[in-house]
């Protein structure tokens, strides 16, 4: 069941919109803000609220990189794999992340602290290599600087 807060936020988003379905991704992002990810139950409830079938809404949910249909860790690392970062040291950064966290791309650490995901260019090319953790960007990284950055995310 959606919480009262989730339902109110989704309805507020949908009220001025041209069609209810046009807020599909916004509604999923609202659920995700509250729960960290979008579970099957919540997806069904959002679909009913927007007048869509669950399958139709899931086709939208699974299309977008920023909608998580599986649980994620407390912090999500988006590792930029664009060509500029690739030239400037994406591979050493990725290797350090994978060995330090003991996970590969698309996985979550056993303690639930970090999820590591690839992302399309973050538009931080002048600071390559770069990544994003939650809402924060970090550029001009080296494997050593990365260690310090990770310390800030408990």
């Amino acid at each position: 069941m959606l919480s009262v807060a989730e339902r109110l936020e989704i309805e507020a988003e949908a009220a001025p919109a041209e069609t209810k379905r046009s807020v599909a991704s916004d509604a999923l992002k609202i659920v995700q803000r509250h729960r960290g990810w979008v579970c099957d139950e919540a997806l069904k409830d959002v679909a009913a609220l927007l007048g869509l079938s669950p399958a139709e809404l899931d086709s939208v949910a699974t299309f977008y990189n920023g909608i998580y249909r599986r649980p994620v860790g407390r912090h999500v690392i988006l590792l930029c794999d664009s060509v500029s970062c690739w030239i400037m040291g994406y591979n050493p950064l990725r290797e350090r992340l994978e060995s330090r966290l003991g996970i590969g791309l698309g996985q979550t650490t056993a303690d639930g602290r970090f999820t590591l995901l690839p992302t399309a260019c973050l538009g931080l090319c002048e600071q390559a290599p770069a990544l994003m953790i939650d809402d924060n960007v970090h550029g001009d990284l080296t494997p050593e600087k990365l260690d310090q950055v990770l310390e800030n995310y408990a």
């Binding site: 379905r21 991704s25 920023g66 399309a120």
Partner: peptide, 25 residues
């Protein structure tokens, strides 16, 4: 202001319209 849920295809000139309509881009 519409903030995307993230996919390269949303920048395509007609994919962006489908994304705004709440569909796959």
């Amino acid at each position: 202001l519409h903030t995307s849920a993230g996919r390269y295809m949303c920048g395509e000139k007609s994919g962006i319209l489908n994304a705004l309509e709440g569909k796959r881009a």
